[in-house]
């Protein structure tokens, strides 16, 4: 199981994402409303920080860990595709995703991004 937090365009943890020590494995783009958005007053919203996502019927800009989790699922998919079906164990796929992530926030594993922001190019060159 890979537990994913949602990051923003500025490599920040989004205001809506869960986090916690030992709870997050990696962070992936989830999109948010930008650095000036106040989730309490719901002011300062900038939609250019949302995440372009494919949705049933086309594409749309959204924010959510529902944007972040499938990006990590997709990365798991291309890693498995690279090595061939049933060649890697789940733990190996997870290890590649974690080890190839861009370390953000505190060095190493931290409570907001786990091992960091997923990096598909790094993962496929791992």
């Amino acid at each position: 199981m890979i537990r994913v937090s949602a990051g923003g365009q500025l490599k920040n943890l989004t205001f809506y994402s869960n986090y916690g020590v030992g709870k997050i494995d990696v962070m992936a783009p989830g999109g948010d409303y930008g650095p000036n958005y106040d989730p309490v007053t719901k002011t300062g919203r900038d939609n250019t920080y949302l995440c372009l996502s494919s949705v049933p019927g086309g594409y749309a800009y959204y924010a959510g860990t529902s944007m972040a989790a499938p990006k990590t699922a997709a990365l798991a998919g291309v890693i498995i595709a690279k090595y061939g079906k049933d060649k890697l164990k789940p733990a190996q796929v997870k290890h590649i995703i974690q080890s190839s992530a861009d370390d953000v926030f505190k060095p190493g594993n931290d409570e907001k991004s786990g091992f960091g922001l997923i990096n598909a190019v790094n993962a496929l060159n791992y």
């Binding site: 199981m1 890979i2 537990r3 994913v4 937090s5 949602a6 809506y16 994402s17 869960n18 709870k23 996502s53 494919s54 949705v55 049933p56 959204y62 924010a63 959510g64 860990t65 529902s66 944007m67 972040a68 989790a69 499938p70 990006k71 990590t72 699922a73 997709a74 798991a76 998919g77 498995i80 789940p90 796929v93 997870k94």
Partner: peptide, 16 residues
Amino acid sequence: QSLVQQVIMAWTLAAQ
């Protein structure tokens, strides 16, 4: 490989 996200917000993505 089971991915579970935990947080409020919905909407679905994505066919990468």
